[in-house]
Amino acid sequence: MKPVQRAAWEERPTIAGRAAKGVSIAVIALLILFPLYTIALTSLSSAETVNRVGGLVVWPGDGITFEAYEQMFRNKVVLRSLAVSLGITAVGTFISVVVSILGAYSLSRPGSFGHKTVLFSVLLMFVIFPGLIPVYLWVSAIGLRDNYLSIILPMAVSAFNVVVLRAFFMSIPQELFDSARIDGAGEFRVLWQIVAPLSKAVIAVVTLFYAVAYWNNWFNAFLYLDDTAKWPLALVLRTYVVESAPLPQAAGLHNAPPTLAVKMAIVMIAIVPALIIYPFVQKHFKKGVIIGAVKG
């Protein structure tokens, strides 16, 4: 490791201080990473190993096998729910990001026609909530039951994400807009050719937030999808792993009762997308894209 730069006036850290810090860092990292490690290892272990150990596998001595994953993917319920989740996340995120960027851009122009109405419709979402039951009755009444749109549409606009985007758009220097308009660019061109390219970081963060929300959502599916064949992965995870209930149509398929390794494989499949996208977006957190909006 490189020697650390320290300001001239700063005292050298004491040994006790360094030790305390080192221990707390190690404990924090371990508390978060160890469960993930042992779950990953168990999902990669054979059924015999899991049986012998009597639970989660901690020591990697017994070799690695993809048995549990093969078994999981042979289970049509899990496979289909994975496809459903991927589809909902892709379509939902696309809708949400496009709608939010357009809306936030329109909200970044105070004084325009109808600006106040639009602004208040969004900002009041922070303090006034329709409540679970009216939304439930409404979504059922307009015929969205058993339709994937019942998962997507109620959560398609997040006021928080719109406000984050808007705050960033408003920080773009006015001169850029003026010169574009002198060149005869309309609003859509300004948004597409000037604002969007400058806002890649914040758009990336908002996309991650939306994608994570869709990927993790199971409650809308639980409320509105009566047909269990349409279930997304998060709901399968809840039923199969958290509740330990048998899956609805699992009977008849050649699946043994859920072994711990298979359960852990499902947990891993639910975690992995976040793990893959996260590093690409994480660097933007530090740039403070979110803070700007939160602090107001």
Binding site: V98, V99, S100, L102, G103, Y105, S106, L107, G114, V118, S121, V122, M125, I128, F129, P130, G131, I133, P134, V135, L137, W138, V139, L153, P154, A156, V157, V162, E187, F188, L191
Partner: peptide
């Protein structure tokens, strides 16, 4: 540009609010 957002916000937030 604001129309799709307004449609969703009113259609799934403010209109159901009246159901209270």
């Amino acid at each position: 540009m604001a129309a799709p957002m307004m449609l969703l916000v009113w259609g799934f937030w403010w209109i159901p609010s009246l159901g209270n």
